[in-house]
């Protein structure tokens, strides 16, 4: 009977502290994100519409920087080199990674060790990889030259020859990043249900048909994600090239990132470099979006 008098004080849902709490908890993180992500982005965008001299902005030029890009032969060449580099490296990595993943799916003695060894290149610092490759490629004391001499050949010119330097760069990237493809694709393969594969074997499919009719279609989404990831990443490749060739010989390995670096820090054209990177950023973003759209369509059909 006395219940009413000792009524507890209830706090209502969706009012007072309940409403404010999420924002309070988000605030520190949000501040950091604003400071290190949003502000630089906005500053970069602003820089891309200005002309600089000796590191200080001297004039607002609107979209001039952006327009100028498309008549800059060096930019167009760098873009072309980058596209070639990305297409070649990523295709090789995808094919190699898929093949290795399929191979490592089988259970046999030593498979764990093999899987571990295969992902080592990925965990080595890129600059170190580049230095090691430079030692391999060096025309005087390099490993390739030593090998060639041992077999009675002459010096091997890698970094001095435009085509060879480009191939050497692709080889380095494939060596370093195939493990990532391998890892993603292996995880994808391991997550596939195994009954359909048994059914296919009973239904009369051989190894090739099982791959073409089951493995590949089922793996398509994973493969697409891995390729998109690697593509975006490869567009930004910088350190290996910087250490290995600095973009040379000539412009043979001058990727867009190296060209942008040169414009900004060698030629001090800060505004122009900003416009360049914004453009590349948009290209990569568009690429990623269209890839994901494509993926959705494939998935839905």
């Amino acid at each position: 009977m006395q219940r009413g008098s000792q009524a507890r004080k209830y706090r209502l849902q969706g009012a007072g502290l309940d409403l404010a709490l999420p924002y309070l908890m988000l605030a520190p993180g949000l501040t950091i994100v604003l400071g290190v992500l949003v502000y630089p982005l906005w500053d970069g965008l602003r820089a891309s519409t200005r002309a600089y001299r000796y590191g200080s902005p001297v004039a607002d030029v609107g979209l001039q920087n952006y327009l100028h890009l498309w008549s800059d032969a060096q930019f167009l060449n760098a873009l072309w080199v980058t596209v070639k580099f990305v297409a070649l490296s990523v295709s090789f990595e995808a094919v190699l990674g898929f093949a290795l993943a399929l191979f490592c799916l089988h259970e046999f003695r030593g498979i764990r060790l093999l899987r571990t060894v295969l992902i080592i290149p990925m965990v080595i610092t890129p600059v170190v990889v580049a230095i090691v490759f430079r030692l391999i490629y060096a025309s005087d004391a390099g490993m390739l030259t030593a090998l060639s001499k041992a077999m009675g050949g002459g010096e091997v010119q890698i970094l001095g020859n435009p085509l060879n330097a480009f191939i050497g760069l692709v080889a380095l990237d494939v060596w370093e990043w195939t493990p990532l493809m391998f890892l993603i694709l292996l995880a994808g393969l391991q997550s596939l249900p195994h009954e359909p594969f048994e059914a296919a074997r009973v239904d009369g499919a051989g190894a090739w048909r099982v791959f073409a009719d089951l493995t590949f279609p089922m793996m398509r989404p994973v493969l697409a994600v891995a390729i998109v990831l690697r593509t975006i990443d490869a567009f930004g490749t910088f350190d290996q090239v910087f250490v290995l060739t600095r973009g040379g010989p000539g412009e043979a390995t001058r990727l867009i990132s190296i060209y942008g670096y040169d414009t900004a820090f060698k030629f001090q054209q800060t505004g122009y470099a900003a416009a360049l990177f914004v453009t590349i950023g948009l290209v990569v973003l568009a690429l990623a979006f269209s890839a994901i759209r494509l993926l959705r369509r494939v998935d839905a059909s």
Binding site: E198, G206, L214
Partner: peptide, 17 residues
Amino acid sequence: PRDRDIAMVFQSYALYP
């Protein structure tokens, strides 16, 4: 399996997704 000339219904269906 494919050389045995059999057809099988799996307990878990095992359809091709």
